[in-house]
Design a protein around this nucleic acid. Structure first.
Lengths: 198, 198
DNA sequence: TTAGATTACGAGGATCGTAACTATC
DNA sequence: GATAGTTACGATCCTCGTAATCTAA
């Protein structure tokens, strides 16, 4: 089965009539495109292009395959777009409780990833000590907050009415109102569900 | 952009409701599927499955994405199939001149790859010494033949009215009537063009 | 000589399987 | 204990970019 990169190369070269322009368009180098074409033709056992002085031209076989390749790419884009609409419906304001040094929390990375996932989400940062963040979350004042966990405590458990989950690649934990089911009832709460991927 | 292997994993798990059965179906291991699912969900920023005692069940998001994934896969299969029909129209008999030991030529591998590319093609093997094969090709008695080339001779050149091309991964060469243009005029000749991918 | 394409090759990253671990019945 | 899934990790394969080579106008 041909991968998307291969199909993109094929379509780009077919449309531009040139490996160079296709490479430019796809932000790759000439050799990369050239190799992809070679692989595609070898896999299919077909000759899709013929060399012309000013570039490459489609053969009859290439012409016959182009529409199918374009459809395959279009379907893939539809998939991506469908996925996009599923979390672009997220709206609301997320109140985040922070502690200690934002640099230590890698807060910038966290926020940028959050924005990438849910661009329409507003965030509001509230700084405090670890204990006060816990209290304000329990009171519903904050939606989610950082929490320095004691080492060796495992992950994914619930305690004290709060659900917490270890963030891999980070040295801190995030807390949100318990159960995850509550999260689903409000726009803000659904954020918590989305955050599971971060 | 999600690759096909990822979409196949998603669809297989969604349909079977189990990583194990999906792995079996795709001839992969449980961890490979599990990783693909994790990557897909991370890329999309969505939770597609929820864990059940007997396996995994689609979430609402997963349900919404399944049709798009199936369409993307179907389009890819249409592309492959279209390519298949392009060289399944090949018919005719190919007379192949062989030399020395068929085992040494890896003739079985060559023929099986040829059959995979052009299933409707008949082949006819004629064994002889290297010189006689050359003569019979020049006389049009054979369509294509094996030839032990002197080392260091480069590849893709034409000499003595014959075109020859080095077969990568093999230690021998294939000869066919010169120019490749002649090849396009007859069913048998078009075989030579197809062989370029082997 | 210039423009365009291919080949060679090496570094970096992705993939997949084995093995070990966790959780649920 | 048995079943289902995940994590860890290492070997292998793939991809892409740089540099060199090839071909035609």
């Amino acid at each position: 089965m041909q991968e998307y990169a291969t199909l993109r190369a094929f379509v780009a070269v077919a449309r531009t009539g040139s490996v160079s322009r296709a490479a430019e368009q796809l932000h790759l180098t000439q050799p990369a495109i050239s190799l992809k074409l070679k692989q595609l033709q070898a896999n299919l056992g077909l000759t899709l292009f013929s060399r012309r002085p000013q570039g490459l031209a489609l053969t009859a076989d290439g012409h016959a395959l182009l529409p199918a390749a374009e459809k395959a790419l279009a379907s893939a884009q539809v998939f991506e777009q469908t996925a996009g609409t599923l979390h672009s419906t997220l709206r609301g304001k997320l109140s985040i409780g922070t502690i200690v040094d934002p640099e230590f929390l890698r807060l910038g990375a966290f926020l940028s990833r959050l924005m990438a996932r849910a661009p329409q989400l507003e965030t509001e940062l509230h700084h405090g000590m670890s204990g006060s963040v816990l209290n304000r979350i329990e009171q519903g004042d904050l939606d989610v907050g950082f929490y320095l966990a004691p080492p060796g405590e495992g992950s994914g458990q619930a305690h004290g009415g709060l659900a917490w989950r270890e963030l891999t690649h980070f040295d801190y934990h995030v807390i949100a109102p318990a159960g995850g089911k509550i999260g689903l009832l409000t726009p803000v709460g659904s954020i918590w569900r989305r955050c599971h991927g971060l």
